[in-house]
Design a protein around this nucleic acid. Sequence first.
DNA 1: CGTCTATTTGAATGTACTCAAAAGCGGTGG
DNA 2: CCACCGCTTTTGAGTACATTCAAATAGACG
Lengths: 203, 203
Amino acid sequence: MSALLLQSIRSLVPVSDDQWQRIEAATQHRSFKKDEFISRDGEINRFTNFIESGSLRVFHIDGDGQERVIQLGVTGWWASDFASFTNQQPGLLHVQALEATELRSFSYEAVHRLFEELPVFERFYRLLIQRAYAAFQNRMLQNLSMDAEQRYLQFRQLYPELNEQILQKHVASYLGMSAEFLSKIKKRVYELDKQQKRATKPS
Amino acid sequence: MSALLLQSIRSLVPVSDDQWQRIEAATQHRSFKKDEFISRDGEINRFTNFIESGSLRVFHIDGDGQERVIQLGVTGWWASDFASFTNQQPGLLHVQALEATELRSFSYEAVHRLFEELPVFERFYRLLIQRAYAAFQNRMLQNLSMDAEQRYLQFRQLYPELNEQILQKHVASYLGMSAEFLSKIKKRVYELDKQQKRATKPS
DNA sequence: CGTCTATTTGAATGTACTCAAAAGCGGTGG
DNA sequence: CCACCGCTTTTGAGTACATTCAAATAGACG
């Protein structure tokens, strides 16, 4: 019984206990150790994943060997190489556990079986993607219109848990900047915070 | 009768003639002149749009007045301020016709009515978003891992029709670079092409 | 404690931007 | 049909934001 997953689904559609049982029966539980790969570049990604605990990153390695983090995920989030899963074609992305991580995964077949059996599940899935798409459009907007410091501040405000839990170098990559530069930004922001505090409450 | 729209839908799901009539009846036809706004920043976007002819851009104006093109659309594409439409909340984006443009639009109410009446339409809509999301993930990948010249070359290869039909300044904004810089890139690429041709077939 | 990796810091560099001016293009009216 | 106007594109010079590389420091893990 995965209370978190049920909660994630019920936040988008109403589900009877009977329906929930059929959904849960379609999932499989998967465990990964720190740094273990959940799926790889070049493979067909067979699963879409709900994170029960732990964290992971979805990333690409481009021509010159640079890693680019496309997505980060922590407990209660969904994450996979979506394009590869959807089209059942070899993917461009790696998915890797960043710590010991427990997933509740739906295989491609399971998802499509549920679409046929439970219209409410297809609706849930549609809403899930809709939300993800809207979030992505927002992220694109930010990447286009903000400089590195603004992106970091926005990220820190929006996802404080990621900012704490995930290694800085992965956060930097997610935000589209070098790890060194993020380090400099954090220093600058920290000094500004200090100054502001002093200014706000002068002894 | 909108053959193009029917084609767009049938490319994703099978639709009977009867079902198609109910879908088409739910649409409305809307015409826009060049530069006219289809929806605006701050408004709730009531429609999702299929482009029957013409072209449009979806863009954001940020703090310092800079315009950032999030999406471009031409005949046969779907485009709207998706986040605003989906959540029925005031949007951050403008949608504007780039030339005389004919849309076939679905209101928020019409879409939801169709979801209830025709499960096949909900499936179509899910597949449409799925595809858009996968494309977006790809674009994000490219924005993170490619420099300006590579992004332009990829764009030109992927969407030659957009490259020809849309003003360079909008393409530049879509690609996340200044119009001036795109101009310089095009010159460089053109000179390279010339050199290559000379090298390939020396008199 | 020692090793391995992550983060910090600094210097030099580069990619892309801004600003300004010139050239090109398209439409409209005389 | 030509001349002019407005807008887009081109071009060049100076600049800035962010990168790369290298070395030092700090942290985590066995």
